[in-house]
Nucleic acid binder design. Structure first.
Length: 649
RNA sequence: GCCUGGGUAGCUUAGCGGUAAAGCGCGUCCUUGGUAAGGACGAGAGCCCGGGUUCAAAUCCCGGCCUAGGCUCCA
């Protein structure tokens, strides 16, 4: 919003990416600033970023703004171009369909979409729409930005109810809005856009989905067309290849191939069944946390899957959470499947009286919980109705927070590093609505911060992002293909002790309220398992692999020897491929089944009493003694190494 | 919950009104093979469930179940 004349001579300053300041006249646009830096940059300017927000180059800058100039070489350029591609799609749709109503059409991380109402389109129409878009691109219409008064915009948009709704909101903010036009078509739009439709590259429409107007279930559902655009055919091909590779890693596909788990019609939605191979992996994961928990002084407890809802009233879950719970009547009482393990653990703690000398008390349980997620949200193992948490609850004195959190963080980091996951962490502090006194919040936050500082961890602070019942440290991590996941958390809880009226006797012989900590290392086994399947593409490290070694006899004559060799590896998950098939076929199958090691035995080995060891990477060593190999396997398994490395140099 | 796809052999899929197909896997036989698919034959299918239209339905229509993706990254 530029002020009139009197101000126009005054100077303002913007901050450039290198940290330097650029002084310009008030009212200067992004493009003016670019020319100020250099004429070359000025003429290359496509758009700008003001304090991280993508804006049109015609937008005025404001004092103190961080300014970035977007040119054709910028990362953001693709976003701008895709926004223009979305306009081309809308133009094509309006040419081919009878009076669809326009909603919004922004770029996304992977492409763009445009929402329409009153549009009856299906994927069979994509070819014709793509052809129309191609024509629009080939026509190379100039994309013209136009500033229009609210009244005129109202006139132009008389036939576009959704655009009018947006316009009325914009009318409260200013007198002018902008339109972007190309050929016979124009749209109310903030921009920015490329110069002409000819700059839009290769467009591909991907799918049709429903989307509520403004994401609100109360609003009508519109037809959303997703697409993507790239500067070249090669880039598009690369994108499609990446999509296919991600599909290859899909845990549902690998889960079926490796016979890990199933989700079946008869058993119901979001209720996975683990087959022997899948449960083998899960058991290894369970053993791993059990060892860690025992080392860290946790006591294992067990609670049932279902409780009277009295417990859920007491914990507060009933009031806040009942819509997401499975509840049912039994005789005259109401029961509910547990959505969390903490109330059960609090109830165990409450059943004793405690001295400060007993604390901290640490309970652990691999507890299955049930949450009635919306059916449309269910997806493979990543979102289920039933899942198991490697839950841990600690009851401690407020003074003990720092020590315990430090210990928990060490274990979490050990877990993440065991799976070769890059991670980051964030401290989430007190939100506006919260329970617990100022003093305890302050003390707790200080202690969390002190752990982070003491260990020199790199962390973000997320102000006000804590739970209402306490502050927390959240981990997030990245898998092998760079996807981000929510990881373990350490949460302090001042609410549950209060609701359960938990207490311990302090040094002063007075009753005090303990602080509770919730922590999980994996979080949900289901989701962690899913992530691991995709992270490793099913090629699990030796310690996790459902089948660790497969013996391949070269001919039937070597079958007996093959079984004798297998017996030498008792305690490992080893199979003999005793099918009537060629060695090639057996090797092929072992690769397809993602077995870490193959032992090949033929007449040569049998005569020498040795084996040949082959791994996933097609490396092989002959004349290996079974004892030597076994020793290696034991070490590789015990150290949880991520790749088979017997043959690594 | 709502929108758009999908549900056919153990797995992956073709067929889309007229006798249910293929590849992988599995079984039997031939082959006894030295480093990523040797060959032949064979078994295996309530075509998700229920209703309807039709001389005839895996196929078309209606309802249900399950499943995949989507449901603000705001003009």
């Amino acid at each position: 919003m530029s002020e009139p004349d009197s101000e126009s001579r005054s100077e303002i300053a913007v901050v450039l990416p290198d940290g330097s300041e650029l002084a310009v006249e008030a009212g200067a646009t992004v493009e003016d600033c670019a020319y100020e830096i250099g004429p070359g940059l000025g003429s290359d300017t496509v758009a700008g970023k003001l304090d991280g927000e993508l804006v049109a180059k015609e937008e005025p800058v404001y004092d103190g703004a961080r300014l970035e100039i977007v040119t054709e070489d910028s990362e953001e350029y693709l976003r701008v171009m895709r926004h223009s591609a979305a306009h081309c799609l809308a133009q094509a749709v309006e040419r081919q369909f009878d009076d669809p109503k326009l909603a919004i059409g922004p770029p996304t991380d992977d492409g763009f979409y445009y929402d329409f109402d009153d549009l009856d389109v299906d994927e069979d129409d994509f070819a014709a729409l793509e052809a129309e878009i191609e024509e629009i691109v080939a026509a190379d219409y100039e994309i013209e930005r136009e500033e229009v008064s609210i009244e005129e915009a109202r006139d132009r948009l008389a036939d576009e109810p959704y655009k009018l709704e947006l316009l009325e909101e914009l009318a409260e903010e200013g007198e002018q809005v902008t339109f972007y036009g190309q050929g016979e078509w124009a749209d109310l739009c903030a921009g920015p856009h490329v110069e002409s439709t000819g700059e839009v590259g290769v467009v591909k429409l991907l799918e049709i989905a429903g989307a509520y107007w403004r994401g609100d279930e109360e609003n009508p559902m519109q037809t959303r067309i997703y697409g993507t655009a790239f500067e070249s055919e090669t880039d598009l091909e690369a994108f499609l290849t990446r999509m296919e590779e991600a599909e290859e890693r899909d845990h549902r596909k690998i889960g079926a191939e490796m016979d890990l788990f199933s989700i079946q019609d008869v058993t119901g939605p979001g209720l996975p069944l683990y087959h022997p191979a899948g449960k083998t992996v899960l058991r290894e994961l369970e053993r791993f946390v059990e060892e860690l928990n025992e080392d860290a002084g946790y006591d294992y407890v067990e609670t049932p899957h279902v409780f009277k809802t009295d417990l859920w009233h007491k914990s507060g879950h009933y009031e806040n959470y009942v819509d997401d719970m499975f509840v049912f009547d039994v005789d005259d009482d109401e029961f509910g499947l547990k959505p969390m393990n903490c109330p059960g653990h609090a109830a165990i703690f409450q059943d004793h009286s405690w001295s400060y000398r007993d604390l901290p008390i640490r309970y652990a349980e691999n507890g299955k919980v049930y949450r009635k997620e919306q059916r449309g949200e269910l997806s493979g193992l990543s979102r289920t109705w039933a899942f198991t948490i490697d839950d841990g609850h600690l009851f401690l004195t407020p003074e003990g927070i720092e020590r315990e959190v430090e210990a928990i963080m060490d274990v979490i980091i050990e877990v993440l590093e065991t799976f070769d996951l890059d991670y980051g962490m964030a401290l989430a502090t007190r939100p506006e609505k919260s329970v617990g006194g100022d003093e305890i919040w302050e003390r707790a936050e200080d202690q969390l911060e002190s752990v982070l500082e003491k260990r020199n961890y790199d962390y973000d602070v997320e102000e006000g992002d804590g739970a209402f019942y306490g502050p927390k440290i959240d981990f997030e991590f990245e898998d092998a293909i760079g996807r981000g996941w929510d990881g373990p958390t350490v949460q302090l809880d001042f609410n549950m002790p209060d609701r359960f009226d938990l207490s311990y006797v302090g040094e002063d012989n007075e009753e005090h309220e303990p602080v509770m900590i919730h922590r999980a290392l994996y979080g949900s086994y289901e989701r962690f398992f899913m992530m691991l399947i995709e992270h490793y593409e099913g090629r699990f490290p030796l310690w996790l692999a459902p089948e660790q070694v497969r013996v391949l006899p070269i001919s039937d004559d070597n079958l007996g020897y093959a079984h004798r060799v297998a017996n030498e590896f008792e305690g490992f998950r080893i199979e003999v491929d005793d099918r009537d098939a060629t060695l090639e076929r057996k090797i092929r199958a072992a690769h397809d089944d993602r077995v870490p090691y193959q032992i090949i035995v033929g007449d040569d080995e049998e005569d020498e009493g040795t084996i040949s060891v082959r791994d996933r990477f097609e490396d092989q060593e002959f004349d290996v003694g079974t004892g030597e190999f076994r020793e290696h396997l034991e070490a590789e398994r015990a150290e949880k190494r991520s790749e088979p490395d017997f043959l690594a140099d």
